[in-house]
């Protein structure tokens, strides 16, 4: 069965934060709420390396948030999407402190919120909002196998240029979001 996935390539991000606003608009988030954040990172290597650390749900194959949620408000569905249910959520924020990717966000209503990979758009055959706006294809959505090839291509290109990068999220058969990270 062909699996769809998203690739987030930090090395390409130019920090325009289009994705953040598109996400906000698409999902009707309140002022002060985010599902996707972009943080600027700077490192002194042989010269200044700057990259943008984008944080949003990776829809892990084995989600920690689902495991820790005391009321089962977070469920990974058959389609591989990890969805949080506002009605069940207690607002205890245990998932927030447990998520290794800092992808769970505390909303202004006190509960948590997270990326749904725009499941409502996917259902209409569209790609997630953040992907649709990204001007530099730092975020790509497509067939998982193709994306893996693309990711590995980008990886080797970057490595030949001397950048220290690695790819996350490929090991599990169904992790929906892969990250190409600058380290």
């Amino acid at each position: 069965m062909s699996q769809h996935a998203m690739l987030v390539d930090e090395s390409r991000c130019i920090g325009c934060k289009s994705c953040t606003v598109a996400c906000k608009q698409e999902n009707g988030l309140q002022t002060g709420d985010w599902w996707l954040r972009v943080w600027r990172r700077e490192q002194l290597k042989d010269h200044l390396v700057r990259y943008y650390n984008t944080q949003s749900c990776r829809h892990c194959a084995d989600p920690v948030c689902q495991a820790v949620c005391p009321v089962g408000a977070i469920q990974r569905g058959e389609d591989g999407l990890v969805i949080q249910d506002d009605a069940k959520c207690l607002g205890c924020h245990v998932c927030v402190t447990s998520c290794p990717h800092n992808a769970m966000r505390i909303m202004t209503n006190g509960k948590v919120g997270k990326c749904t990979l725009c499941s409502h758009r996917l259902a209409r055959g569209k790609e997630p909002a953040c992907v649709s706006v990204c001007p530099v294809n730092s975020r790509v959505y497509g067939e998982r196998e193709e994306l893996l090839l693309e990711a590995n291509k980008r990886l080797s290109e970057l490595r030949t240029k001397g950048l220290r990068v690695h790819l996350e999220g490929t090991e599990k058969e169904q992790t929906a979001v892969m990250y190409l990270l600058v380290t």
Binding site: Q25, E26, N27, G28, L29, Q30, D33, W35, D86, G91, M107, T108, N109, G110, K111, G113, T116, C118, H120, R121, R124, K126
Partner: peptide, 15 residues
């Protein structure tokens, strides 16, 4: 009762 917590924080667009 914390009514703020009872309202949903997101409202996806319909297209």
């Amino acid at each position: 009762v914390r009514t703020r917590a009872l309202t949903s924080s997101s409202e996806p667009l319909d297209h």
